Amino acid sequence: MAAWSATLDGLAIAVRLTPRGGRDGLDGVETLSDGRQVLKARVRAAPSEGEANVALIALLARELQVSRSQISLTAGASARLKRVAVQGDGEALAAQLQKRLCEI
């Protein structure tokens, strides 16, 4: 299963978030032991009071060049593995994410 997929109203992304990661950034795609793929992301923010989730949304907004209001956390608010929904043109967002990952 791919780390992201286009949906009717945008893009769904499976993310493995590392809070207190020393910097805000994307680290590529990782395959988990069960075969699922996730987008690896790290943020400087601590996991308390949702700070890391807010930082993740800001990071994805910057990387995908969309507004923060277009991004929502759909699963995993208190877990390391999260599901994120991005509103917009799913194919264009997927291409933007793929292009960004090729640069790292």
Rank of each mutant, 00 (worst) to 15 (best):
A3Y: 12
T7I: 02
D9G: 05
G10Y: 08
G10L: 02
G10P: 11
A14P: 01
A14S: 12
V15G: 04
R16T: 08
R16W: 06
R16Y: 07
T18W: 06
P19C: 00
G21H: 03
R23T: 08
D24A: 00
D24G: 01
D24R: 00
D24C: 02
G25M: 03
L26G: 02
D27R: 14
E30W: 00
T31I: 10
L32T: 07
L32K: 08
L32W: 04
S33P: 12
S33V: 11
D34Q: 01
V38W: 04
V38Q: 06
K40T: 14
A41T: 10
R42T: 07
A46F: 13
P47Y: 12
E49D: 15
E49N: 15
G50E: 14
G50A: 13
E51Q: 15
A52G: 01
A52T: 06
N53Q: 13
N53P: 09
L59C: 08
L59G: 02
A61V: 03
R62L: 01
R62C: 03
E63H: 05
E63F: 09
E63M: 11
L64G: 02
V66P: 03
S67L: 07
R68E: 14
R68V: 03
S69L: 10
S69G: 11
S69C: 06
Q70W: 03
Q70V: 04
Q70D: 09
S72P: 03
L73Q: 04
L73D: 01
A75C: 01
A75M: 07
A75T: 00
A75F: 05
A79L: 03
R80A: 13
R80Q: 13
R80N: 04
R83N: 08
V84L: 04
A85H: 14
V86G: 03
Q87T: 12
G88M: 03
D89T: 06
D89P: 00
D89E: 06
E91Y: 04
L93K: 02
A95T: 08
A95G: 07
A95D: 09
Q96T: 15
Q96V: 13
Q96R: 15
L97D: 02
L97Q: 03
Q98I: 05
Q98R: 15
Q98F: 09
Q98T: 15
K99P: 08
K99R: 14
R100I: 07
C102G: 15
C102L: 15
